[in-house]
Design a protein around this nucleic acid. Sequence first.
DNA 1: TTGTGTTTTATTGCCTCC
DNA 2: GGAGGCAATAAAACACAA
Length: 328
Amino acid sequence: MMAPGIIYGGASNFDGVFTQKQRDVFSSSTVPKGHLGSLFAPASSSNFLGSSSMVSFRGVNGGKRSFFDSFDQDDNEADELGEYFHQAEKKRRLTDNQVQFLEKSFGEENKLEPERKVQLAKELGLQPRQIAIWFQNRRARWKTKQLEKDYDELRNRYDTLKSNYNNLLKEKEDLRTEVFHLTDKLFVKEKGNGQLSLCEENKHSDALAKETVADPISRVEMSNVPALVVKHQQEDLSSAKSDVFDSESPRYTGRVHSSVIDQGDSARIFETEQSDLSQDDDENFSKTMLSTANLLGKAADDDYPATSSNLSYFGYPVEDQGFGFWTY
DNA sequence: TTGTGTTTTATTGCCTCC
DNA sequence: GGAGGCAATAAAACACAA
């Protein structure tokens, strides 16, 4: 893109747009300095503040904003024009007071109605166009800041969610270990005193407890478990519950039944978890969060019927979890 | 003083709305 | 079709270290 058409000197019959190079040539050699100096005196003695001395010829050749846009018609007064041409010099920053005033106005309303623009311009001794540009740039800065803020907030939420997710994984792992040990105890009881437990048979009790093989049922089937237990699993599980588990501690029967022995959702939890443990990238994290959270919500209902039927462990409505993790 | 990075002011082109 | 907004960009002004 070519450089903006800012002209030192603002010759009134100029009808084009100068690039920086052209301007440099113009100011340094083409036009005698004395001539320019007499036309565009410094603004030091004027109350015409800011960069109003800059003349834009944007749009003269087809652009929609003509040079006279700077005056917004109602400001297009002859004396102001004359003053304008006598103030031409380099780009200037607004004074602190002007900026303060504009900031205050921006704080009240970041959009600029035409009346307010003219009013501000008069009060600050600037061109309405300068006011409009200042507001435009100010909105751009505000938007950038806002984006940074939003990003930080999202990042924090994401980190928190990920942390919760990891905690849940750990908790599930602990629970699975507990389930395994309790199941093992049951086998010992089934076999009677003096018989080997599953752990002992496999000679890897501790290691097994920490393995990531997900489904205890699969583990049971893979082991040389007593036929009675396998039969119970393959038959009606509710009767298995009454035949085997009800004779034991109620605390464990309930938990084992609903969280582990039940087929369907609970089994899928473990399937999901197995794959979870082998992946760690953020994308998969998000996906597995969604599926796991939904399943956990369902499992929680099974375990704790008194809880709301549509809340997951995160306390979010399950139906909102489609992609609702990121909503405010 | 000078080089360099940042901020501010302004332009340009495109888009939307009335 | 004109007015105004926005994104991208240029360039002056400014800050600051070496």
